[in-house]
Design a protein around this nucleic acid. Sequence first.
DNA 1: ATGTCC
Length: 467
Amino acid sequence: MVPKSVLKEISPCVWEIPDSYRNDMRVPARVYASERMLGQIVRDRSLEQLVNVATLPGIVNHALAMPDVHEGYGFPVGGVAAFDYDEGIISPGGIGYDINCGVRLLRSSLVKDEVRTRMAEIGKAIRIDVPSGVGKGGMLSLKGKQIDAVLEGGAKRMLELGYALEADIDHIESGGRLDAADAASVSDHAKARGHDQLGTMGAGNHFVEVEYVSAIYDETEAERMGLFRNQVCVMIHTGSRGLGHQVATDYIRLMNGSLGKFGFALPDRELACAPFRSPEGQSYWKAMSAAANFAWANRQLITWEIREAWKRVFGSDENLELLYDVAHNIAKIETHTVGGVRKKLVVHRKGATRAFPGQPVLIPGSMGTGSYVLCGREAAMQKSFGSSCHGAGRTMSRTRARKETNAETLLCQLSAQGIIVEAGSKAGLTEEAPAAYKDVDEVVAVIDDCGIAKKVARLKPLAVIKG
DNA sequence: ATGTCC
């Protein structure tokens, strides 16, 4: 464990672990957090994991942790690490098992008071149209070349198939498609797991939520994003399902086997990686891009399903427009200024959101607490490779949350707040108890205060549909 | 997160 005394506050809410802390660190580590939050952060292994990340070949500037950081597989969740394109590595653990887990926000033209009495109905309709649960299949069953077209075309393939509007594509990070994707780098096993999973939610922290705009912090940005007070919106949180999980599994195994060849001695085997330019690194990059495209296609088909449900309940004139869609678990090739020089980097975001200047940043809180819309600021480029936090962040393991939460009590608490809950399983519900998460208001305040992204609007839940 | 252990 990294003791709190090692961390020095170098500016408000920015804490540094110097590279002298351990002799294998190549760069310092930095944490964005309030002092109170730092007290929570030092209680798990996330900072030790962050120090481990700082030892990886080709890392530039700092290994970064956002205020929602917590322990993950090898790399902490809520972490950002950028590696030199030519000299650096790519690591599946730095992206996560759920490749391109992410969030998308749809806005309606309805206001809260018009829909209050219809929430049970829309909750059930979404629950029926968007299948959820571990291993669950959906409305499409893709075969052979059909799945390859989705892996290489992402959300744009869904447009060709009639499940997207032209305008949707312009409001997705990277246009909902990474060009590097190559279906041939994805195993048949991964394709088999994913072939019927488009348009499905999954389980764990994945959800669909009907929310309303409860506060506006920046009128100009809110107007630009088409948001207004009491407006009803829909948030979708899911990823690449079994397909992405299998891609991660396949390449962690492959890269563990090639560590010796590259002469890598890692402080933790969970950091399995390969030089980005190596055959292993390139294969994973192409497969990760394909899985990311699959996730964008998934959120797109879910959008189509929700639009159908929405029209059934609220009438055919009612539509849902895509505000934005962001990835939370992904690596990207980006150019950033490092030491005054423009450099091509492989930016790993694991439980972190891209937050380029002017870009909408979507941050869901824990179940029942609602979400934030922020807007990326110029300073993010220097402070965090244009990245923000991605959510509230866990303070309790799934097991502990399940042990300490009573499902009935939790349901009562949510319904007392007027929130409709459609839950797939009681175990799944208790794992996501708000008590198992940090306070999203506090997490977002750090991001706002340190100038990474500014608060635009807050949304509160009306109906929660969970896996 | 995940056909929650090949």
